[in-house]
Write a protein that binds this DNA or RNA. Sequence first.
DNA 1: TAGTAAAATGACTCGTCGGTCATTTCAGGA
DNA 2: TCCTGAAATGACCGACGAGTCATTTTACTA
Lengths: 203, 203
Amino acid sequence: MPVMGKTRKDVVSEFRRNELLTAARAVFSKKGFHDATIDDIAETAEVAKGTVYLYYKSKKEIYLEALRFGIESLNSELNVKAEGPGTCLEKLRLLAATKLGFFEENRDFFNIYYSELGKLPSHPAGLELVKDLYFKQAKIFARLLKEGIRRREIRNLNVEKMSFAIADLTRDVTTQRVLGFSKSSLKSDTDFVVDFIWKGIAR
Amino acid sequence: MPVMGKTRKDVVSEFRRNELLTAARAVFSKKGFHDATIDDIAETAEVAKGTVYLYYKSKKEIYLEALRFGIESLNSELNVKAEGPGTCLEKLRLLAATKLGFFEENRDFFNIYYSELGKLPSHPAGLELVKDLYFKQAKIFARLLKEGIRRREIRNLNVEKMSFAIADLTRDVTTQRVLGFSKSSLKSDTDFVVDFIWKGIAR
DNA sequence: TAGTAAAATGACTCGTCGGTCATTTCAGGA
DNA sequence: TCCTGAAATGACCGACGAGTCATTTTACTA
């Protein structure tokens, strides 16, 4: 008997899909798309291989789903934060902190996203999802930058290039952290990257 | 009869290895390690599959060889340039220009390198080669930065973080270019990234 | 508790691809 | 031109993993 548009069956089914997705994220994060096997995912989720196919129709579908979840969450978090008040510098710091925090909490997602980014040049027509995250994020920064230029807080440089640079730098900080190159606290990494973006290296 | 330590056979063999390597780079660049097949490489090199195995003992060996070539060339170019005279800003511009130029001339290598970078988080113990390039490059920038700090040209920030940031930014410019996001000339991209690193975005 | 429909299982199939090797082609010396 | 060893070839093998489906288990209801 349907309640709120969802039958009991739907709820259980959604729960199972989520369990599988979590397992999948862990496996894909650790092994990458190709080296991860459906058996790995099934084992991690403590179900049999066939069960996986009751909820997802292919390996690719699970993978894309795992990516989509993270992409949508991150983008929506950033969009919310970008709306608030404050100077450009304050907002820049807030966005950077949000992004770094999100990746910190979702490293499995980060690894998948990052490796997919690495494949972009090879398969340019490949993953629109990933290009999307990249572009939309750059757009968020671009809006901030334009506002800053209008308010004379920010230099009048090529906005697109600046936004990509900021998107890249904030992502790369997470890479340092994931690879264990940075042993600093999240806050101090955030402070550094914001300062770097803001003032550069020149004395 | 050996001349300069190399028999005629060695020369021919080296030539063939090189032909294969070029084909391999093209294929790996386009398809990535997993999707590239030995048959692809053989076809591109216009030889039969078996011939590939006369010169390389495995798919992995060809791949690593293709990576190593680029890594060693780039690092040695950068090292040479880093030795010259000039202010820090001048040297920074020179290094950036060299790196961007190298990637521009060796896009196949760039794609392989970049996708391998993407896999680093998943296989942290994986490719020492790639970590190496990353580290050694950061080291080159770090030396420059230390000198600049001593000379009061550069702010006294965390040198390691600055050098990673610079290494990342200069690489990411190439990504923009490869993906077709940047339509600017190589020079104007170089100018931008140097200016960004030097002065930041603040007015 | 018996009956049944849905959910879960895992042995199996089938295509792909890295790697091998018996056979063929080639090159160059006599 | 013939001979011989090296180089090249591509049909073939075996492993592996995505995806299937006949069978079993579970969960619910009457």
